[in-house]
């Protein structure tokens, strides 16, 4: 039982990171119906930005996190403007291929500049641990929980309470109608990318701390898993992405703990296929059908 609880804690902290990435997928998909394949690489770049600022400029944890958020946010907006904007009314497949292209460019440019070898992350947080009854919680995990919860509340407030958030919701329902109501659609979409990408930046630094190592291709698999989390929760739904992220994190941790670590990735793909077959709209997604 204590092992189970311990694994729950580990799963929740991994899941929080997935949830942060999944939010970016779900917001972008919600607003322009694009699977932003490059989102996983934005998160990889977040990890690298934090690595560079801490190693070479001596930043501590929070300034490094802010730096990742800013760089990733800006990068997300630039990518949207250059690569996705011209394709906003193209087929979804064309947009998906573009996103794969952007992902390749980000991965291999990083590899070209930083080298393909795995880099060890500096110790940014104390490795102190606390024992709470049967389970052990590390300082890192506490940080991960606290930051994730804080950001999710902040995000919910932005979406529900601010003017920009209302514009985001309006554009995701009907772009043309939103435009007619005087909403600047381009700015709204850019803002969505800014939010999603800066959350991915945070996820980047957190994962660097969690796994202690980073490499240029680290974004692909967690990126896919986060996407699966978004699909699981119902793509386009913000609370869905959070639930999905936590679920995937826990499922993966449990498979490693009680099954075989060899199948840790397979279980996630299996979850994806099951959810797509049983309830393609996800847990909290809305059913959409084509008008004939």
């Amino acid at each position: 039982m204590s092992q189970f609880l311990q694994q729950m804690i580990n799963g929740l902290s991994l899941g929080s990171i997935y949830a942060l990435i999944a939010l970016g997928y779900t917001m972008v998909y919600g607003i322009i119906k694009l699977i932003n394949f490059a989102h996983g690489d934005i998160y990889m770049l977040g990890a690298y930005v934090a690595f560079i600022t801490t190693t070479y400029f001596g930043f501590s944890f929070f300034p490094a996190m802010i730096a990742s958020m800013v760089v990733c946010g800006i990068l997300g907006v630039i990518i949207e403007r250059i690569a996705y904007k011209p394709l906003r009314h193209a087929t979804r497949i064309a947009a998906l291929i573009t996103a794969i292209g952007v992902s390749y460019v980000l991965e291999y440019t990083t590899q070209y500049v930083m080298g393909s070898e795995v880099k060890t992350y500096p110790t940014l947080l104390s490795s102190a641990t606390f024992t709470l009854g049967p389970v052990t919680v590390s300082m890192q995990q506490i940080y991960i929980f606290a930051i994730t919860i804080f950001l999710m509340i902040a995000l919910q407030l932005i979406i529900k309470k601010t003017k920009m958030g209302r514009a985001m919701r309006a554009v995701s329902v009907d772009e043309d109608a939103a435009k007619l109501m005087g909403i600047n659609v381009d700015t709204t979409i850019s803002f969505t990318f800014l939010l999603g990408s800066s959350l991915a930046g945070v996820a980047g630094i957190l994962v660097g701390i969690y796994y202690n190592s980073i490499d240029p291709l680290m974004g692909m698999v967690p990126g896919l898993k986060a996407f699966i989390a978004a699909v699981f929760g119902g793509i386009g739904s913000v609370p869905g992405a959070m639930i999905g992220g936590l679920f995937i994190g826990i499922a993966e941790t449990m498979v490693v703990a009680y099954g075989s670590s060899l199948y840790r990735d397979a279980i996630v793909y299996l979850i994806l296929i099951l959810i797509l077959i049983i309830k393609p709209d996800g847990l909290l997604g809305k059913n959409q059908r084509e008008k004939v």
């Binding site: 690569a83 394709l87 947009a95 573009t98 794969i100 292209g101 390749y104 460019v105 980000l106 590899q111």
Partner: peptide, 13 residues
């Protein structure tokens, strides 16, 4: 790989 990535984007646009 960078060239491939760029080419995908440019062709699609």
């Amino acid at each position: 790989m960078i060239i491939y990535g760029l080419a995908l984007v440019i062709i699609m646009i």
